[in-house]
Design a protein around this nucleic acid. Structure first.
Lengths: 203, 203
DNA sequence: GTCTATATAGCGATAGAC
DNA sequence: GTCTATCGCTATATAGAC
C-alpha cells in the first residue's frame, strides 16, 4: 500500500514535469507548431514513453490547459480573501495573467479550427474549471458595474472575453522584444490601457 | 505590344484571384495551417501551376500581406483628406481593420518563430509599406497627444502596437460566434473599449 | 514503463509530358 | 503555363523487445 502510494507519487511528479515542458512549448510556439518529438526530447524520455502517459498530443495540451486554469483559480481565490474592490481584484488577476504571458508560461489558447478544440470541449475537468473561473470573474464584473467602477453599458460576458484576451495579447511580447521596457512597466502599461483606454483621462 | 499587355493583364487578374484565396485562407486558419493544396483547389488550378506564379508558400502569404497593407494605406490616405481630428482618424482606421477582421479578410499576422517572418523581413515591398503605414499612424498619434486627445504618458510606438493588435484580436470572432451581436455593435464596442477603457467614464 | 524501429499520412516542392 | 505523378521530409502514433 505504501509502495503503491510511492509509485503513484513518482508517476505524478513525472507527469508534472511533462506538463511543465508542454506548457512552455505551448507558450513558445502554440499547439500546431509544438511537436511531440520536441516534448519528448525536452523531458528527456522517448516519444513512445510519452504516449504511455498521455494518449495523444491533444491530451498533452489539455493537461497543460487544465493546470493553468487551476493556477488561475488559485490566483482568483487569493484575491477573494482580500479587502480590495471588485475592480482592483479584476486588475490584479489580469496582472497575474500578463505576468504569466511575459514569463513565457501562458499556453496559447486553441485556434478556431484546431483539433484541440473538440478535445477540450469533451474534457470535463477543463470545462468545469473554465466555468468556475468564468463564474467568479463574472460576479466581480457585475459587482464592479453595480458600484459604477466598470462601464454599465458593457455586457458582462463581453468584459470577460476582453479580459481573457489579455492572456494571449501579442503586445507584451512586442514590447519586451524592443528591450526598452521592464516587465513591470509592460504590465502596468497594459493594465492602464485595458481599463482606462488610450484616450487621456481628466485628472 | 498590345497582345503582350493583354497577356500581362490576364496574368495579373489570375494572380489577384490567387491572392484573394490566400488572403481568405490566411484569415481562416493562419499561415501554418493553410496548405498549398487547399489554395490550389480553391483557385481551381493544379498545385504545380500555382508554383509557376509564386515561388513558395511564404511568397504566397507575403503577397497577401502586401495587398492588405496597400488597402490599409488607402484607408489611411482616405482619412488624410478628411477634416477629422487625429483621434477620430485613428478610430476610423481602427474601425476599418476590425471590419476586415470580422468579414474574414484579415490575414493573421506572422507568429513569432514562423518561416514567414524571415521571408517578410527580406521583402522590401512589405517593409516599405509597413514603414509607410507606421509613419503615418505615428504622426497622427503624436498629433493626438499634442492635442491632449491621447494619454501623453504612453509612448507613441506602444500606442501603435496596441492599434495593430486590434487587427488580430480574437474578441470580435468570439462575440460574433455568440450570435448576439451585430457586426456594427461589435465594432463600436471594441472601439469604445480600446480608446475609453473598461472603466466607466464620467459623463 | 522504457527503449528502438517503423507504420502511416500529409505537406511543400518538383519532374516531365503536353 | 497547365496538368499528373511523385519525390523527400516531417509529424503523429504504434509495434514489439526488454
Amino acid at each position: 500500500m505504501a509502495r503503491l502510494a510511492f509509485r503513484e507519487q513518482v508517476l505524478r511528479v513525472r507527469e508534472d514535469a511533462i506538463i511543465s515542458c508542454v506548457n512552455r512549448l505551448l507558450a513558445e510556439k502554440g499547439f500546431e507548431q509544438m511537436t511531440v518529438d520536441e516534448v519528448a526530447a525536452d523531458v528527456g524520455i522517448a516519444k513512445a514513453s510519452l504516449y504511455k502517459h498521455f494518449a495523444s498530443k491533444e491530451a498533452l495540451a489539455a493537461a497543460a490547459m487544465v493546470r493553468v486554469l487551476e493556477h488561475g483559480l488559485e490566483a482568483i481565490q487569493a484575491q477573494g480573501t482580500s479587502q480590495s474592490s471588485p475592480l482592483e481584484r479584476l486588475k490584479e488577476v489580469t496582472r497575474w495573467a500578463i505576468r504569466l504571458l511575459l514569463s513565457g508560461q501562458m499556453p496559447l489558447l486553441p485556434a478556431q479550427n484546431s483539433s484541440l478544440r473538440s478535445e477540450l470541449l469533451s474534457d470535463s475537468r477543463y470545462l468545469d474549471l473554465l466555468n468556475d473561473v468564468s463564474d467568479r470573474l463574472g460576479e466581480w464584473i457585475m459587482n464592479a458595474q453595480a458600484l459604477g467602477q466598470i462601464d454599465r453599458t458593457l455586457a458582462p460576458d463581453v468584459v470577460l472575453y476582453i479580459l481573457f484576451a489579455r492572456a494571449c495579447d501579442p503586445v507584451p511580447a512586442v514590447m519586451k522584444a524592443t528591450g526598452r521596457y521592464s516587465d513591470d512597466a509592460i504590465v502596468e502599461t497594459l493594465i492602464n490601457v485595458c481599463f482606462n483606454g488610450l484616450v487621456a483621462r481628466p485628472s
